[in-house]
Design a protein around this nucleic acid. Sequence first.
DNA 1: GTACTTTCTCAGTCAACTTTCAGGAAGCGT
DNA 2: ACGCTTCCTGAAAGTTGACTGAGAAAGTAC
Lengths: 240, 240
Amino acid sequence: MSAMAAQTQPKQSEAKLLVVEDDANILELLSASLRFAGFDVSTATSGSAAVSAAKNATPDLVVLDVMLPDLDGFEVIRLMREGGQRTPVVFLTARDGTEDKIRGLTLGGDDYVTKPFSLEELTARIRAVLRRTTAGEEEPSRLVFADLELDEETHEVYRAGQRVQLSPTEFKLLRYLMLNANRVLSKAQILDHVWKYDFRGDDNIVESYISYLRRKVDNVQPRLIHTLRGVGYVLRKPAV
Amino acid sequence: MSAMAAQTQPKQSEAKLLVVEDDANILELLSASLRFAGFDVSTATSGSAAVSAAKNATPDLVVLDVMLPDLDGFEVIRLMREGGQRTPVVFLTARDGTEDKIRGLTLGGDDYVTKPFSLEELTARIRAVLRRTTAGEEEPSRLVFADLELDEETHEVYRAGQRVQLSPTEFKLLRYLMLNANRVLSKAQILDHVWKYDFRGDDNIVESYISYLRRKVDNVQPRLIHTLRGVGYVLRKPAV
DNA sequence: GTACTTTCTCAGTCAACTTTCAGGAAGCGT
DNA sequence: ACGCTTCCTGAAAGTTGACTGAGAAAGTAC
């Protein structure tokens, strides 16, 4: 595992998350990176522990694996809500039968992510759910850097006012770069955040996608995507 | 504003609802989604609780299951009205004999929905009842987006002035898209809102109906229904 | 009942997207 | 300048997701 980038979300970064996951590796991956992303993370490794943790810690959002050793995720939520808590949830589900049990979930503003996922995918969902369930202050879903604009909700991207069509991976990569503008990102970091955690290919795929992105969104002056040979990539304004 | 947020109808969204339902799952489904739709929701799980809740909370509308453990829905209404309250009601009924008993009641401006229902079905009825019982400000029952028009009362649909015939599901789907114009809707969201809550099929049916709709209402320029691969669908005017 | 409409499923096709590979270009140290 | 390394990028192969026609099943009207 490579160094983890700081992708601090200034606005929502103080949010309290409760992460519930029985697989130690995934739990570690999640708590480390979500903490690094600026969330206040507590954890639980079983359903019953989750219920009491939720009572005490009153998290703003729960990241909840559906498959748990004792109670399943749905039970956990039912128990939490019986206690009057209306905490939003992002479920983690395997891509199998359990997926359809998720039905009805998007009604209350919750969401789900299927395993394996990429960290960017998960944090994007978490941020979206927080955005829509946090009363009041509408946080903009639009990232802007120089003359680059990216709308997280509609998936629209503009460079110098021109609409650009991106594939899902291109979009995720660009979002990651924009969230970390002016920060140098190694290929390993990019791989760790933008690609699913079970990806077993090599760095070259990052080069390929950087190349695609440059062609689509960085084909005008000033160039914003820069290569630091032997180090990584960075999105920044030239000059200085 | 988020992907799913707000199928909120600004005008009616502050309305106070009292939801009366003894099945915990359905109650949770209803309160979560109606709250999310912007209503101010309180709940009761028995007929007697409903009567006193109605006294105290003075809701603008009651969503009332006919089958209740103690008093049945008709009794509840009778008691409420004996107390002088003339609150409109949307009944929830099983598809069985009780259906006929409802008929007489709907004359007063009330309405009913048979279980299982889809959320869009229910919110459409709630909105319609509020529209016709809320004195004064006539809210239009006509949705318009670009050259698409949909009349919620007559169920007529026009594209570019041309009348189009839609099946019930096609109509509901189009209404949902129009209510959420410019908002990206995932297949899961669409399934959750447009299909009945007991539907156990998969996403493909959404694709099928999108395909039907395109053939009927989106066969002219400019195309309004757009696919975001891996994300969902959106009704919007083409990019700038 | 029969005919008709509508809903839902399935599977084939196609298009878009992802991933790999390999040759060439560009940067870097000496 | 030379050689070494790293990066870029075109092309091909592999994979996935969406669209759609056909038809079974369920529901409705006559």
